[in-house]
Write a protein that binds this DNA or RNA. Structure first.
Length: 191
DNA sequence: GCCAACGTTGGC
DNA sequence: GCCAACGTTGGC
């Protein structure tokens, strides 16, 4: 294993031959996902429908919102480094009855500093985040479509092929990657 | 309302 | 650097 480089990344086109450790080895999920982030195209974000529902997103101007307020480093890394223009994102209702994936949205602006962290009056204010050294990031998401039918968390848990979903493995994370196969399975379940 | 699974903080 | 205490998220 090569030593980690510091500073700006340099291009290295050699194929990486390093064997991939099992993702759950040593519980290093966030590191594993951070490394895999480049390869991924699908994500899942959580929101409490009482606070901001998928319908709220559909009704928003341009069906778009700033996904602000995330204050978890693993989730921040996905927002800042992982999510790319055009990536598709499941919209999940947490703290709902039942919890469900209700719709699909799309990244329309890549990670940029979350201004609510700079605002003393904001709930998301963080004195450690300065405009010239921001700690917290957000993306802009635009509603694409409601799922034909919501897919519930119990349904997801009942599927063996979805047992490894980050949604299941890291229950508290509010922004998680979704593998292509997982995405396709869930879209099929909804259809 | 309870609790599991973390992340954060602070004492040492 | 370790670890106990505490806080938060979110499922049940």
């Amino acid at each position: 294993m090569a030593a980690k480089k510091k500073g700006p990344k340099t291009e290295d086109r050699r194929p990486k031959k390093t064997a991939e450790p099992a993702p759950h080895a040593e519980g290093k999920w966030s590191e594993w996902f951070a490394r895999k982030a480049r390869e991924r195209r699908y994500w899942l974000v959580k929101s409490e429908p009482e606070v901001f529902s998928f319908d709220d997103l559909v009704r928003a101007p341009k069906r778009t919102t700033h996904w602000d307020g995330v204050r978890n480093f693993a989730a921040r890394n996905f927002l800042r480094d992982g999510m790319k223009l055009g990536d598709h994102v499941f919209f999940y209702h947490s703290m709902a009855n039942p919890q469900v994936i209700v719709g699909i949205c799309e990244v329309v602006r890549e990670g940029y500093p979350d201004p609510s962290a700079f605002d003393k009056k904001s709930y998301g204010y963080d004195e450690n985040s300065k405009p010239d050294d921001p700690q917290w990031y957000m993306v802009d998401l635009r509603a694409v479509d409601q799922l034909p039918r919501p897919v519930t968390l119990p349904e997801i848990k009942a599927r063996k092929e979805l047992a490894d979903m980050a949604l299941i493995r890291i229950g508290r994370l509010s922004v998680t990657p979704v593998r292509v196969k997982e995405w396709e399975t869930i879209v099929k379940m909804a259809g």
